[in-house]
Design a protein around this nucleic acid. Structure first.
Lengths: 146, 146
DNA sequence: TATAGTTGATATTTATAAATATCAACTATA
DNA sequence: TATAGTTGATATTTATAAATATCAACTATA
């Protein structure tokens, strides 16, 4: 009953398995990672592992690129609009010196964090994991404007 | 004193003048318009006219495409995240049937409006005119999350 | 310990978005 | 009323982002 039902965030797929599931090459996957579109789990040996949630996230990135014709830099710019400050509740002072808060080209998880985010693991941070789909970002903006 | 200082929103430049100022072709300008990136003023004869504000707006679009490498569809997706509903203060009911509120691919001003926006002229609407620069959109998201 | 898979880095190819060109019909302005 | 500019529509070119290929060194696993 639970050999099939693996937890959504359990890193179980190797890069080649992930590539097969997504029908793309391992090179493409590494390129997306280098661009900061996702953060895979890494073993001590530096080998990447992907969870089901990772696969879904990357599928969403694929759709944005191939169907919606949004360039990789466009996706990064959209990710940079996620109101992370509202989710992690960082201080005024912290925001002043935060590249993520002040930038508009890169997702927050691509920055070296000094503040409240330093202790956080971006991969399990709500900013990264919950709002991975483009449609979720607009929903988030809607929810904070209530 | 005021022959030089023309109002920012006065439509004074023909398409060829605008193209010269922006160092692009009139074809490219018409393409951007067809994509819904901007709305020029139109004379009764259907001829376009551009204001200084229009030129600035299009310069910002150019930078996004050429410097930031964001595709046209990427820019459209970013524009679609502008919380117009929070600016025009439309009702719950109106939001339910609004393509702009529910979509995530196109700027609100590219939709046929039925609601509160029907009476509004998008070109002079704050949603369109005030948040034309990409950096302003993040600022807007910040301001509504206070 | 041998084989299959992984790492990052760089170089090359390809797919296509963005830009340009061309057209005949229409409009502005001198 | 003649010329220069505009309109939209379609066809073509080009610039480059995205994808792929190749490499030697390293790691996993049977």
């Amino acid at each position: 009953m639970n050999e099939i039902n693996v937890a959504q965030n359990e890193p179980i797929f190797t890069i080649s398995a992930a590539a097969q599931l997504l029908k793309i090459s391992v090179h493409t996957l590494r390129m997306y990672e280098r661009e900061g579109l996702f953060i895979p789990y890494k073993k001590k040996s530096n080998q990447r592992l992907f969870s089901k949630a990772d696969i879904e996230r990357i599928q969403c990135i694929r759709n944005a690129i191939n169907e919606s014709k949004i360039s990789i830099n466009g996706i990064k710019a959209i990710y940079s609009l996620i109101p992370c400050w509202d989710i992690v509740k960082c201080s005024e002072e912290e925001r002043k010196n935060c590249g993520a808060f002040n930038g508009e080209h890169n997702p927050c998880w691509t920055y070296d964090h000094k503040n409240v985010c330093k202790e956080r693991d971006c991969r399990s941070c709500e900013v990264y994991s919950k709002y991975s789909e483009c449609c979720m970002i607009k929903e988030l903006i809607k929810s904070i404007s209530r």
